[in-house]
Design a protein around this nucleic acid. Sequence first.
DNA 1: CCAGATATGTAGTGTTCACTACAAATGTGG
DNA 2: CCACATTTGTAGTGAACACTACATATCTGG
Lengths: 200, 200
Amino acid sequence: MAMGRPREFDAETALDQAMEVFWRHGYEGATIAQLTEAMGINPPSLYACFGNKEGLLRAALDRYTKLRGVWMDEVVAAPTARDVAERMLMGIADKQTDPANPPGCLLVQGGIACGTGSENVPFELAARRAQNEDQLRDRFVRAKAEGDLIQTSDPVALARYVSAVAVGMGVMASSSADREALRQVASVAVQAVEAQSAGG
Amino acid sequence: MAMGRPREFDAETALDQAMEVFWRHGYEGATIAQLTEAMGINPPSLYACFGNKEGLLRAALDRYTKLRGVWMDEVVAAPTARDVAERMLMGIADKQTDPANPPGCLLVQGGIACGTGSENVPFELAARRAQNEDQLRDRFVRAKAEGDLIQTSDPVALARYVSAVAVGMGVMASSSADREALRQVASVAVQAVEAQSAGG
DNA sequence: CCAGATATGTAGTGTTCACTACAAATGTGG
DNA sequence: CCACATTTGTAGTGAACACTACATATCTGG
């Protein structure tokens, strides 16, 4: 009985636009005015759909990590730990300098430090980064079990390491590092994984 | 002829307090009210001494990089490229989890992404990080000339790599990574430098 | 002791922020 | 066609922000 007036905008398309604004300006740097303009809607529509600014960020993060999760599945499908690291870091070098997106990574750009009232935003981002790290860790645990990584290697530390390099590359990308520079970093970084690989 | 009323606070002590606030909340997240309270002064004193909020940040960054520069000199004094990397990254693991300071690194926490009107803050931070990278690069160039690094190694890429790892560790530290986790990352990271070292 | 100069504390300034009342518009079920 | 439910656009709301006018206080040089 009575379904109400239908929404006139597509939530996912609007989220993509919001994602870009957060990505470029960070959570605190992004204003509702910028967000609504990018999304092509007015503030009341935003609040009716996403609750508040933080709810919008969470929705954007959900969408970001969902897209990214598909890619991560391809990454961990690489045959060896070394190839996983290389595929991940080289892919990140390309993605973080893709002109179709703002530079860097939303999970870093979103907000490393925030002011009073937004203290949980950095934690929110950290939790999403931790998901990637867990996925890497599981893959490296398997690599060690398969004898691909040497027995003295620590899969947890390796996953942390690759994750840290990825974050560092994201910060570099956001401060105008070019693709070649990021690839150089990735190339060197992979050598540490090689050093823990059997026959490497 | 008439020197005026003397300042009642010590500028460097006040800067240390401001530094901590920027470190913890980022440039945009830090408010003048928080800054003045931490510094123990009133807004007019702040503006008379530092110009504006951005001027205060620059002064805090100057002080931060000055203190850090002393430490970096010790780092590059290590005998080999490998030891330079180890000393730097292990030292960072300790410093970024020192309870005497906010977690992470001011040059990252200060603001990776900022809103309209503060666009140059991220560049300001990036420029300071680049100084460290340059210092590392010079050291690695020397290491290669000395035969400490193998002839196929790229000192520029190596410096970029170590710098990227340091930044990544900073982000990890700010999201509650403990000292042991950072040391693990440092330990793995050093292996990439070892792989480019003569006799490594 | 006085004039010039700078610092300080109080108490604001205008602006921008996230967020929302409200009425009009647009749909559905009976 | 008629309640009813929900969305939309306009136009604000109070709060927080960076920053400052101004009177007072505290110094130096003569």
